[in-house]
Design a protein around this nucleic acid. Structure first.
Lengths: 130, 130, 130, 130
DNA sequence: GTGGTCTAGACCACA
DNA sequence: GTGGTCTAGACCACG
């Protein structure tokens, strides 16, 4: 799986990492039970600090995406967290300002839904490709 | 228009402010040309610092939502910025990680689209209510 | 002489006023010894506060462009201030940051000089027209 | 690069800062990709407040002169913004009142152009010197 | 009265 | 160590 880091972005590096790993899990590029690269190797591959990779992995563990396996290292959880009420609440909180902005920029409801659909399709197909 | 600030949230105060004001504009609760409360009055109403409100207003000005009118204070722009390619790119960048997460949490495409629709409806109706 | 005020501009109203009156004097549209409109009439014409017009006139007097005549009101000075060393120093201070910016924006020396020439021509011809 | 702040000037401190940094970039004294001093070190060097420096840096970022690099701090942009129509319009707006004033002070067109040329030369040579 | 600027000092997120 | 955020309180320019 390819991970790309943008040093100029105002998105924190560890967030970029977690986002892309989560997308990998979503697409199936990273299978359940599969091991992630070691902190050391990933950090040197990306040319970033070990602490940063570590923080990303900790965040993923915290949110239930991965677990620390004694010998295999960091592996993708077999049973991913199911969406509950709290998750939906927090999801709405994230989506709401995006929709507000879109309305102000004259993006129609249909256009936004279509964008979502295309991203869904894109993520699913990227998994098969890998 | 009611504005609520959550001091516990990890979302910066000035971002909470801008988000809610943008939602107000989107819903129509804040009409084009309407004046926003003064920096000082809003800050004392919310019990936060003047500079925090100022930063929110500056950000809104910067993104083209309001203009600083010399006499009337801060007013909503008459012509809001239209979505262009750059906007769509940045929009996709925001939506993509949300969708990845949703997939991992077993939220179906339909469920997410439905959520979007309901938020759209909610924002539109909140404007009429006010 | 037509004066146009832009309420949205971040340039203070009284500065817009003084600038345009100075341009009027430079172009000859306002002759030496000619009277400016009264504070009251100008402010009501432009729909701005009397204080603002007053401040503009005071600034003009302060810089030697006009004098307060007992009966004619505010009139253009017959002998305008001559450029001295202090003026040149202050002139350079204003021009320097403009040139720095221009260089960074890849505006050639010739392009900037040409712009200056065209503005000179424009101001001179606008005087004849009036 | 030497930066001098004039506390007496009516030009805001952060504007003085941005102007001098832009001149540094224009002259080449600050190379593309070069790092600027940290907010804190510069502020303590100049004896001014951290936030003032911060505001200057933010303005420079906003106008495309620098980018905030997560690790290196603030660095000069590699590709500076190119002048477009909007820039020329705003440039003319800045130059016009200066020329009006100059005419009133009996500064000839040639004298002003000569001043511009000498500033151009001065900025270019100051870069080599450093 | 408005926003704009500056100061001083604090805590946190990031790398 | 960096910049980002928030607070508190001051003065000034503007209209």
């Amino acid at each position: 799986m390819m991970i790309k880091i943008n040093l100029q972005s105002d998105v924190p590096l560890y967030t970029q990492l977690t986002n892309q790993i989560i997308e990998g899990i979503a697409s199936g590029a990273l299978a359940r039970g599969e091991a992630l690269p070691s902190v050391r190797s990933l950090s040197s591959d990306l040319g970033i600090n070990m602490h940063t990779v570590n923080k990303a992995y900790s965040a993923l563990k915290q949110e239930g995406y991965v677990e620390i396996h004694r010998q295999k290292g960091v592996v993708v959880q077999n049973s991913l967290p199911e969406a509950d009420d709290a998750y939906y609440r927090q999801l709405e909180e994230k989506v709401r300002p995006i929709i507000s902005e879109s309305i102000c920029h004259n993006v129609s409801e249909d256009a936004l839904l279509e964008l979502c659909r295309s991203i869904f399709k894109q993520i699913r197909s990227s998994g098969k490709a890998t």
